[in-house]
Design a protein around this nucleic acid. Sequence first.
DNA 1: TCTTGGTTTGACCAAACGGTCAAAAGAACG
DNA 2: CGTTCTTTTGACCGTTTGGTCAAACCAAGA
Lengths: 200, 200
Amino acid sequence: MTKAPTRIQKRNRAAILSAGLDVFSQYGFRGTTLDQIAEAAGLSKPNLLYYFSSKEAIHTALLERLLENWLDPLKALDAAGDPVQEIMAYAQRKLALSKDFPRESRLFANEILQGAPRIEYILHTDLKQLVDEKTTVIKGWADKGKIAPVDPYHLIFSIWALTQHYADFDVQVQAVMPGSDPYAGAATYLDHVISRILQP
Amino acid sequence: MTKAPTRIQKRNRAAILSAGLDVFSQYGFRGTTLDQIAEAAGLSKPNLLYYFSSKEAIHTALLERLLENWLDPLKALDAAGDPVQEIMAYAQRKLALSKDFPRESRLFANEILQGAPRIEYILHTDLKQLVDEKTTVIKGWADKGKIAPVDPYHLIFSIWALTQHYADFDVQVQAVMPGSDPYAGAATYLDHVISRILQP
DNA sequence: TCTTGGTTTGACCAAACGGTCAAAAGAACG
DNA sequence: CGTTCTTTTGACCGTTTGGTCAAACCAAGA
């Protein structure tokens, strides 16, 4: 039976995870140092290691927390709903995730870029299973003529790409469209795109 | 007057750049070590530094070589051509770049994720200028009713996102669609998507 | 208050890091 | 062959890195 965390434990663990998310999402696992995280968290390095046993433990905790919700938008795609509405709503949920959790998106992107050594098995099990299930649903819609006959895998890839781009390539987006909030325009554009793609 | 490079110089410089591209594109600048590059290139570490004065010199050389061709597909978008054809052809050029130079795409992605410290000025000058120019062209097409009235910035972002995704998230794509070559399906899907988006 | 358990720190360590250097080894060419 | 220039290497250096540890510090309840 593990003890309930103290007030200080809660505060410091949260600070470390937030600081770790800042740094890991920018530099990846190998490019991140404990000193960077410690400074961002406002703690000393040995104090970090009092709360997490290693650099990898922080990274793992972040990845696990991320994966808890990462697949939710796709899971919520309902085979019984209206096809175009369902896919549009899925894309909007994914876009909202990019807007509200850009660091998590970049953490995921970094992990994939590095070959996904720590989450590869999830990609091949949970993710693949989920995608297979939902592509079957989408293919069913296409076969019934409810949506245009698109490749459901590439449809899902395109939704991932379109939505995550605004978080992962934020620096580039900001450079090209300075000042404005890209997410408002992205939401409108996304609706346009998806309704056009799927029009039977 | 710089001397012509010897046969050995050509071979070893090329080996180092290729090895550096392998490692930098996976782990980013900070996450990459000279030993990794040296081993991948089949040279000793001091021998590396005989050809490139520092880790940063290798990275800079790679980024410069990348940027030479990175913007070419968009530059070739012709205001005098057929609007839908031009944009579709642009997307296909960009997709071909992802297929033929996936490591370069990942190197770029890594640089952006890390805040683009070494190429930020290019994003704000060359890239922004080019995008502004081409969005003006696209907006002109939209105003004349030649294509649907889409936001040209988000249109370009979507082409970047869709095409680079197959290189940058290769591991994930392979996990979900094992065995198959995603680029064939992507090319077909891309044509479908763009023609649908732009139909006036 | 005192005691107990949670928290913080400075000093330290071995390994890995980017980089240097002088000397050895090898190519090129008359 | 001998000479000159290029290439390669092993030994080394100072710094950074992930991590340890004992000791000091502090919060909180009895």
